[in-house]
Design a protein around this nucleic acid. Sequence first.
DNA 1: GAAAAGAGCACTAAACTAGTGCTGATTAAA
DNA 2: TTTAATCAGCACTAGTTTAGTGCTCTTTTC
Lengths: 158, 158
Amino acid sequence: MLRLTKRTEYGLIALVHMAELAAARPAEAEAEVISARAIGDIFPVPKRMLAEALKHLQQGGILESTRGVRGGYRLSRPADQVSLGEIVSILEGPPTLTSCAGLGAASSDGGCDVEPVCPIRSPLARLRTGIWTLFEGVTLQALADRSADPTGLFSATG
Amino acid sequence: MLRLTKRTEYGLIALVHMAELAAARPAEAEAEVISARAIGDIFPVPKRMLAEALKHLQQGGILESTRGVRGGYRLSRPADQVSLGEIVSILEGPPTLTSCAGLGAASSDGGCDVEPVCPIRSPLARLRTGIWTLFEGVTLQALADRSADPTGLFSATG
DNA sequence: GAAAAGAGCACTAAACTAGTGCTGATTAAA
DNA sequence: TTTAATCAGCACTAGTTTAGTGCTCTTTTC
């Protein structure tokens, strides 16, 4: 039912928390690292899964990691330069909607028998683009600003 | 990865096909019924799964069924009065995005330990609304019009 | 009747998800 | 130099979901 995985949820919780910490700091101050353990102590989520998510986010370039005692993670970019699309894409791949509507188009269509006569391929591909656009337009900053509408669809500027 | 199920795909294929048939007919003409077998003969999809999808769509009120020889299904409403949101909602439930962000809000939150301190509940609920709005805004008619943008997000009127 | 078609229930196999176990590498601090 | 905190990597299990099939029953036209 168009659901994000738990790992993505945990990753998002951690990222939003880091963005909130950053917002509470003077803009010039360097971001301090925060360990997976520390985040897991704050939010009652399975610590190992949380660590998995953080690891992936590091590999995806959203987080920087420091190892060893007093190590941890921090955002590698300001929160307003990280999109939800990028986060979700790293943690569970880009939204595909259907098996045949991958971003790369033709490459992933090999296995679909319907493709030559499929009446929904093209419209669903456009719909997927719409969803993707929505995700790309939501920044981590917007997610962390709890009172705001992250999509911008319902605010005055829309 | 935010993917629709196969059953939903098959249901959409059938519905779009019916909408195309309707478009090729004079507006006043009554829609003829088309059997699950006939649709399955046109598109190379598992016939039984297709039948499952059609059955659900009938139960959901989008299709009318006629039993017996020469029976089958037809749209119970014009294609421009059926939204993709309604279709998806019938075939796999409304998009929830996260386990705790159900449409009914509080009722489905019982099992979430994070809820009291969750930093992403509210923003994700708004994002879910955005996706839902997108789905609600796409009509079956728009899906059947292959050259058009079903979301309306990228057309001149947007 | 016979055959075509939908309605309903139950079942299996494969894939995915959530979560855990364990070991290794790196680094600050005692 | 030892210790402990922390990230990094691999593999494994159990539960759930998804895809697809089997079978029977009812309805309706011919």
